[in-house]
């Protein structure tokens, strides 16, 4: 127990949930949910909203558990030093308890509001992010975010299962897009934050395989991502508007990945541009699917 008086307010506990990551989870899960409904699944809007809340809280709980486990790393990285535990606002033990409590509540709530398939998938997502990624892979292999990316890619699958009771191929295509998007996204970040990760002893690709190898791998993943990005059109999940947007943004992604590949060693500009564009890319693809599905409800 930590007997020091705590100066943490509710917003510090909210910060433990990684609100920015949570907002991306809510968005991708919402798109998965709407796609399932457009595919014929029937669900009460109230139950869908509660399911989405449970998925968001589950994601937040994994964030809190990640901050508990990685408090030592967070304390030496410029990007994470302002988090509540390194600042001494929230004791580690409280972050752990908070994360575990929210994990249990979110899974139970999803089971209650939807079904056991979705609840099981959410529990697996939390387990994968905390145990497989944070505790095992993050400090042991430069493939950490490649494999660990599965946790971040699962929310639309969980959401699809929450309203449909199962997760068909289209749900896994959404998973695949986020999964393939993760390596170039994080390696672009790691290229211009290399010193941060090296200082913390996290084996990110640039400080293990080197800058040149990382750039080649970013380009390789970008090619596969650009192809996977148009896959929803092939299965009928996306329409012509989606095809146009995913092709255009896929081409943009490839162009920026090419620039990274050809950039000068230690150059930060091209990786920064790719990192920023990668966020826009994912948003654009999922927003296009959402817009098409919503438009279809009214046509």
């Amino acid at each position: 127990m930590d007997d020091k008086p705590s100066f943490a307010g509710p917003k510090d506990y909210f910060a433990l949930l990684k609100p920015r990551v949570m907002s991306l989870v809510i968005f991708t899960a919402f798109v998965g949910m709407i796609a399932a409904i457009a595919d014929g699944a029937k669900v009460h809007p109230g139950l869908a909203a509660v399911s989405l809340l449970a998925i968001a809280v589950g994601a937040g709980a994994s964030g809190a558990l990640n901050m508990w486990w990685d408090a030592d790393i967070d304390a030496v990285m410029a990007r994470t030093i302002g988090r509540p535990i390194p600042r001494g606002l929230v004791p580690k033990s409280e972050a752990a308890g908070f994360g575990m409590l929210l994990s249990a509540l979110s899974v139970a709530l999803l089971a209650l509001a939807s079904n056991y398939v979705a609840a099981g998938l959410l529990a697996f997502t939390i387990f994968f992010y905390v145990v497989i990624y944070s505790m095992w892979l993050k400090r042991s292999t430069p493939q950490n975010i490649v494999i660990g990316g599965a946790a971040g890619a699962l929310p639309p699958v969980v959401a699809w299962a929450a309203v449909a009771g199962h997760a068909p191929l289209d749900a896994w295509i959404l998973f695949l897009i986020i999964f393939l998007w993760t390596p170039p996204h994080f390696w672009a970040l790691a290229l211009y934050r290399e010193g941060d990760y090296a200082r913390a002893g996290v084996p990110m690709m640039p400080n293990v395989a080197g800058e040149a190898s990382t750039k080649k791998q970013i380009f390789g993943y970008s090619i596969i991502l650009a192809v996977a990005g148009v896959a929803p059109y092939a299965t009928g999940l996306g329409g012509l508007a989606y095809l146009a947007i995913s092709s255009a943004f896929g081409a943009g992604f490839l162009m920026l990945a090419w620039r990274v590949l050809k950039s000068e060693p230690q150059s930060k500009e091209a990786p920064k541009q790719l990192f920023a564009f990668s966020i826009l890319y994912l948003f654009a693809l999922f927003a296009a699917l959402l817009a098409e599905d919503i438009a279809a409800f009214y046509v």
């Binding site: 007997d3 008086p5 100066f7 943490a8 509710p10």
Partner: peptide
Amino acid sequence: APDLSPEAKKKRGHRNLA
């Protein structure tokens, strides 16, 4: 606790409310 400052008490109140 005897050393609980007004600021710490205020934060504790906010946590309890949350």
